[in-house]
Design a protein around this nucleic acid. Sequence first.
DNA 1: CTAATTAAGGATATATTTGTCCTTAATTAT
DNA 2: ATAATTAAGGACAAATATATCCTTAATTAG
Lengths: 152, 152
Amino acid sequence: MFSKSTEYALRAIIYLAQKSSANQKVGIAELADAIGSPRSFTAKILQNLTRDNKLINSVTGPNGGFYLTDKAKKKSLLHVLSLLEEEGIITGCILGLKECSEVNPCPMHSQYKNIKPLLLDMLDHKTINQLASEMVDPKIVIHNIKRKTNKQ
Amino acid sequence: MFSKSTEYALRAIIYLAQKSSANQKVGIAELADAIGSPRSFTAKILQNLTRDNKLINSVTGPNGGFYLTDKAKKKSLLHVLSLLEEEGIITGCILGLKECSEVNPCPMHSQYKNIKPLLLDMLDHKTINQLASEMVDPKIVIHNIKRKTNKQ
DNA sequence: CTAATTAAGGATATATTTGTCCTTAATTAT
DNA sequence: ATAATTAAGGACAAATATATCCTTAATTAG
């Protein structure tokens, strides 16, 4: 449903909510291994969320890394999607019509309009922190098959 | 949500359900103009659905074109998605985990599993023909802003 | 202060998706 | 039969997404 970039971003943020804080930063190597994503590519994705809109914080240098503030941890995945400008995946027309609306609906509009709010609510009604805390149950995971390489 | 290719395919098939039959074929030019898609690219997409799995029929030559049989018109959009091998967009893990399941769920699994069947049902419980017939209401449309070029 | 560590950022590479153009083959109307 | 029409199909082009590598800048520990 989402692009790889978006998936990595969401997984990374949930992981950061679980493992990081202002005095417990997480390096890109650990993070990427944990969520099963390519390291440098993930770094770029995090940079976007660090630089402009400041959802993620980072510090360089020894014991540096990425972390989320308590405030950031209270945001929802939908908020992350909005920062990534990927809300359209949910809010857009399912047949890809630019002008699909209540006034000029596509043939699927009347059906999808009932599900759209459920999807948005799903992405909005829990905080990142709440999602992360569900991982106290060890069967709940956030990683793909673990990468064994130690490459950059 | 879906790729351009998939969107074009779904729109094309709904249009063909409305406008075509065994003795009323639709040419690629008319079709692509009607649904607002690039002509040659759309041709390729239709070829895939014509060649192997035979959802769409076609004939070359004068008065030729594409058409759907009555049988094909009774299929659902979900069936089209399965022919395109794009069901995973709905059925896959929302965070992109390959191994996400009831046994090893991602943090969103318990929420998304309630919505997934609604999405699948939305795509399955109407036939292509039923969707097409809704376009008797002239406000229901299947095209983007119309292309004015006459290019191939 | 120095060296080590870590993210930032630029450049580049690869893969995939999207789109175009041209030739060929099939079919039909005359 | 011939010419016109239309999809099929191959080759290529452009755009975008994904991924890697290297250098730089910032920070910190010692």
